Simulated scan of single mutants.
Amino acid sequence: MRFLTPLGLYVLAGLCEIGGGYLLWKWLKADRPLWTGVLGAVLLVAYGWVATWQTTSFGKTYAVYGGVFVVMSIAWGWYFDGFRPDRFDIIGGLVCGAGIAIILFWPRA
């Protein structure tokens, strides 16, 4: 159960960063209203704040989050943009997931 809190925080951070970036992207590239860009900027700031809630060091937090970002970005693109991941996207996501598990949960001596 001790792994649920850090994973939940990584998912929350991912939703803030990917969602914020997506809204800014839509505002700038798809001519969405200004409020879309403002909300995206607020979410990006929230991402930076949420990341500080992790109990690990800065470097470890961002190393693990890099893998979470890759996996969540593939899923986000699939759900929201109609991007269909191919087998190499899936394999890459699984490799990132293994890296997340090793860095965050592998027993240390």
Score class of each variant (00 low, 15 high):
Val70Pro: 02
Met1His: 13
Tyr10Cys: 13
Asp89Arg: 04
Leu28Thr: 11
Trp35Gln: 11
Arg32Cys: 14
Ala75Gln: 00
Ala30Gly: 06
Met72His: 01
Gly99Lys: 01
Arg2Val: 10
Met1Lys: 11
Phe80Tyr: 05
Cys16Asn: 11
Leu9Met: 11
Gly93Phe: 07
Trp106Ser: 11
Val68Phe: 13
Pro107Asp: 06
Gly67Thr: 02
Ile102Phe: 10
Lys26Phe: 13
Pro6Glu: 08
Val70His: 00
Gly82His: 10
Gly67Asn: 01
Gly97Glu: 03
Lys26Asn: 15
Trp53Lys: 13
Ile100Met: 04
Thr36Asp: 12
Pro6Ala: 07
Asp31Lys: 07
Ile102Gly: 02
Phe58Gly: 02
Thr52Met: 12
Leu24His: 06
Gly77Asn: 03
Ile103Trp: 00
Met72Asn: 00
Ile18Asn: 08
Gly97Cys: 12
Cys96Gln: 03
Ser73Arg: 01
Thr36Gln: 13
Tyr22Ala: 12
Phe3Cys: 12
Gly14Ala: 13
Leu24Ser: 10
Leu43Pro: 13
Pro107Ser: 05
Trp27Ala: 15
Phe69Ile: 06
Tyr79Ser: 12
Gly99Met: 03
Leu12Asp: 07
Tyr22His: 13
Asp86Glu: 06
Trp49Ile: 13
Leu24Asn: 12
Phe105Val: 03
Gly37Ile: 03
Leu24Ile: 14
Ile90Val: 11
Val95Pro: 02
Gly82Pro: 05
Tyr62Trp: 05
Asp89Glu: 04
Leu44Asp: 08
Ser73Glu: 00
Trp25Lys: 09
Tyr79Glu: 04
Gly21His: 09
Trp76His: 05
Thr52Val: 04
Ala13Leu: 07
Pro85Asp: 05
Asp86Tyr: 05
Pro6Leu: 03
Trp76Leu: 01
Val38Lys: 08
Phe80Gln: 09
Gly66Trp: 04
Leu7Ser: 15
Gly92Ala: 02
Ala51Trp: 01
Gly93Thr: 02
Trp27Ile: 08
Thr52Phe: 08
Gly92Trp: 05
Val95Asp: 04
Glu17Arg: 01
Leu43Val: 04
Gly37Pro: 12
Lys29Pro: 07
Lys29Cys: 12
Ile91Asn: 00
Arg87Leu: 09
Gly37Met: 06
Leu23Tyr: 13
Ala46Gly: 10
Val95Lys: 00
Trp76Phe: 08
Val38Phe: 12
Lys60Trp: 07
Leu43Ile: 02
Leu23Gly: 12
Val95Glu: 04
Lys60His: 07
Gly82Asn: 05
Leu34Ala: 14
Leu104Gly: 01
Gly92Thr: 00
